[in-house]
Design a protein around this nucleic acid. Structure first.
Lengths: 227, 227, 227, 227
DNA sequence: GATGAATGAGAGTTCATTCAT
DNA sequence: CATGAATGAACTCTCATTCAT
């Protein structure tokens, strides 16, 4: 390894260290109220050092957003589409998203705030995180439609956003309704209900089978993570 | 009118004037970055005057949240449940919510941020806005279930949150994806799709009829507004 | 009584009302930290009204100082000189001064502060309060010297200042050492000791008699007050 | 010298620099009217820097008072008791105190004001400055009484306060009566008169000898300073 | 005359940023 | 490179003063 490479590695490590600390502080206090001393304390790095790796506070924020992706890891799950039952697949996905989302609501909301506030950030984020994520979901829906499993009259554009939006909205609602320290939510059950609802809607119908808890042969496709 | 009554009126007017300006500035810059001079400029009022009506900047925020309701006006719509077709009813509601939400994403996100950040605010908001809102929706779902129109296996608690969350999430997504000044969204069409999706799910089924645009005998129950 | 006279009376009453309130607030918080709202509250008079009677906050202070005299009422006591025993006379005077002083240390210190701070005020106060007060005391000392009762080598100028200064200093020291609410001080006893000390000094000598408490035929010349 | 020691030295220097500037400004304008910019200007230091060394303006005041002693250096003089003539000793002490006091009346008055105004400060000051000072004087008086040089009927508590109070009061009176720039006061003469007065009182007696100016074999115990 | 809401200059305090060590 | 003391602009909040009622 070259000298310069090693230097780059150290540089990268420091940058990530600062970003992580900043993300934490931003989430807790909001960008405006977070201070550089806060971040330096959180990162265990001197104030002056931060300015070696980032020009301004604003730049720290941008660098965080640049590296942020909405649901990329979801792709792992959706690759399994067709192999597993839709109900099971969606249950798994929803569970992962809800869990991850619930643990990171503050980060999420903070990012949303900055994204909506700033034109440049919004455009960047749209292009880099939202569009790809939507494409993944839309592709999945289209595939299942063509396979004859989903209703052919589906507007994939709207449906994809409805699905993703539903998860986002749920996370926010639960974030408001539950206290952080409270008993762990029954994400599995909730995810199952959601999957059911998503597949069948509210309207009356013949229940094909009992969804939800049924053994657990799903372990193999778990742990996709959502960042 | 008594002297003191007139004074109260003026006081109320000033408070609302300040709250409106604050809401605007908070939404645009975030609570932390918004300054009292910003608010005073926006309200056309001197800095000192603001402190006659509110003790601190934080108190302005609280006073705004206290007066904030999530979906109370929705009740107007839901009162019509049963009189109108579900598809039509939901279409109307979704349309109203999406429109209103889209016009106020920033406010909404800003509020969410503060709500999630601060324990006191979160508890207040939960009790005063979220809980009542959820009750309205759950009651509606339960009623329709008992009427035999919605699936009896519905978990109303989850379903209600899924519905509300879906709208919230959609608003956020569209907020990121669309530029403010862009062509007005086709809310009516989107709302129709959503209603369809919500009632029937993604799964295949016999389409009863074509949802969406069909004449327009709905004007009578429009204009409920969502605050 | 003329119309205009009545008006003047009302005006005077208002001015005094404001001065009294201001004196109280100034003593408690210091001139710099005292606010016009404080004074208006204390006086039970609207803020704006105060500005009808005084141009500025500073002017209130000046008007108070103009009307302030150091020890004029002392003259009443000193008129008795020769009629009563020196020890008794001084005891009475000291007692009155200490009592009054102790009850008004804050006022006193506040005034001192402003007097020493501001050239104009100092000159005014010097001419109007200190000089006359000193003259009274010096005249008394000289009279007693000529009567052969006080040492002929006395430097009346220094002695007068030593006497008055001693009382002032004592009041300040006791003001620091005692808490306001504490047991009432034994002013009579202290005053007796002081008188003794002042007449005989620290040096050894033959005690003529036991000073201090002895009957009480002094009631007739009490209650002179010191403003 | 260690790195950290050097840092401590600098820190201490800065603190003292700020305290000195603050003391000056407080004395000139009073605590309430003195501003941080005033202090920063006087100290030749940026506003923000002050807040590195002191949390608040109030804390600067407290830190000054904590380090303030009333008459500790007096002990140096009183150690000479017995070696020198009482008249000479007192003359020296009085002279030192009057000189020092006169040069610092404003500081003194300012401190008195704050001490009397604030319970916490008063208690601190009482314990730390007044009580020890009084003890020194009382001990001296008691010693001289036991030596048979001062009257045995002396109430040392009162006498000590009378002595100290006299000096304080004199300083204040001269502070009002004299302009700062005026001809230097004849402190030596005044101190001599005071010593005489203190030792012998006002009453008539046989003058033992002529006090005051008599050669000057006192230089050796001068320059004790009074802080 | 009396009132107190309105004003804005100016206070105390914070913090993004720099730079000598 | 790493540090954190130093800086001063900008913030929140106060209050002497004015003026329409």
């Amino acid at each position: 390894m070259e000298r310069s490479e090693r230097k780059d590695l150290i540089t990268d490590k420091r940058r990530r260290q600062i970003q992580a600390a900043a993300m934490k502080v931003f989430s807790e206090k909001g960008f405006g109220k977070a201070t550089i001393p806060d971040i330096s304390r959180e990162a265990g790095i001197a104030v002056g050092t931060i300015y070696i790796y980032f020009q301004t506070k604003q730049e720290i924020l941008l660098s965080i957003l640049e590296g942020h992706v909405l649901i990329e890891p979801l792709a792992h799950f959706l690759d399994k589409a067709g192999e597993v039952d839709d109900q099971d697949l969606l249950t798994l996905i929803f569970e992962a998203c809800l869990k991850f989302g619930f643990d990171n609501v503050n980060q999420f909301i903070f990012l949303l705030g900055e994204i909506l506030r700033d034109d440049y950030i919004r455009k960047m984020y749209r292009k880099q995180a939202v569009k790809p994520a939507m494409k993944i979901v839309e592709d999945y829906l289209r595939m299942r439609m063509e396979a004859g499993d989903f209703s052919p009259s589906l507007d994939t554009e709207v449906a994809a956003r409805a699905l993703v939006g539903m998860v986002i909205g749920l996370v926010l609602l639960y974030g408001i309704e539950q206290d952080k320290g409270s008993r762990s939510m029954q994400w599995r059950r909730i995810a199952g209900e959601l999957a059911h609802f998503v597949l069948s809607g509210l309207g009356e119908r013949m229940e094909k089978e009992d969804a939800g808890e049924k053994g657990d042969g799903l372990g193999d496709i778990r742990n996709g993570g959502v960042a």
